[in-house]
Amino acid sequence: MSAFLEIRNLSARLRDTGERVLRSVSLEVPVGAVQGLVGESGAGKSMIGRAVLGVLPKAVEIVEGEILLEGRDLLKAKPSERRRLIGTRTALIPQDPLTALNPSRRIGPQITDRLVDILGWEKARATARAAEILAEVDIPQPERVMRLYPHELSGGMRQRILIASAFAAEPKLIVADEPTTALDVTVQKQILHLISQMQARHGTALLFVTHDLGVVAKICDSLSVLYAGKVVEETTVQKFFAAPQHPYSAALLAATPRHTDAGASLEPVPRAVLDAVSAEIAADDASWRRHG
C-alpha cells in the first residue's frame, strides 16, 4: 500500500438544494508526497480538504465514496474512531492565521493541547516539544511566545505558529488549505518556503489546496485540477507544466501571469473552454442521476 490517503469516488451535495459540490472525486496522496489541489474559488478544493479532516460544513453531505486513511475508511468508522485517526495521523494548516488561533487562549496550550489530550503525552514533554518545534519554524524566544496571546503577534508569526502546531505531533498527512492566501506577498514566499522545508525534513505527506499554479510549481510533486467539484486532470507537476492534457487545465495555465513576459495582457479562461467543461459536467450529472 503506497498511498497514505486515498479518496475514491467521493461525491457530496448541498443538503438543502441537492446540488452536487463534489463529483466522484478520486485522488491519492502517497506517503511523504506533496499533492496539489488546484481550481478556481468554489471548485470544491477546500471542501475535499475539509472532508478528509471530518469538518465539512453542516450544509454539505457526502452521498457516496470512500476516504481511506492508511487503508481505513473514515466515512465508515465510528465518530470516536474517526476523531482519533484524524487527530493522531493528520493536521491542518489553515488559511487565515488571524482567525485560526483562539483569541482567549495563550499560544502554548494551543500547540500542546493535542499532544496532551489526544496523544496522551506528559505535559512537560508536550511543552518541551512545542518550544522545540517553534524554534524549528524560526520563532525567536519560543518560551516567551508560548505565554503570549494571539493578538500580540503578527499575521506571519501566527502562520508560523500554526505550521509548527501542525507538525508538532509528527502527523503523516497535513492538509494545507490555501496557507498563504491571507498573507502579504512578501510573507507568502517565506511561509511557502517554510512549509516546503518542514515537509521535506519531516517526510510528511501534504495535500496542498491552492488556486495559485505558481505555488504548485514550487512545492508539489503531482496535482489534481478541479472544476465545479470534478477532477478534470490528475498528473505530475512536470507533465502538467510541460503539456496539460485537459483543455481547461491548459487554459488555466495560460491564464497564469508570468514575470518573464512583463507587459503582456492577462488571458482569462476562454468562454469556449468553460462551455466545454460545463457540458462535460452536465453529461456527468445526467449519468449520475440515471444510476442514482
Binding site: V55, P79, R83, L92
Partner: peptide, 27 residues
C-alpha cells in the same frame, strides 16, 4: 463554533462538546 479556531480544534480530534466548552465558550 463555526469559527476557524473551533474547526481547527475539531481536526485535532476533540469531540464536539470539548470544542464548545474549551474553544467557543470563553469567547
Amino acid at each position: 463554533v463555526n469559527l476557524d479556531y473551533a474547526v481547527l480544534a475539531r481536526t485535532k480530534g476533540y469531540p464536539e462538546t470539548s470544542v464548545i466548552l474549551a474553544e467557543a465558550l470563553p469567547n
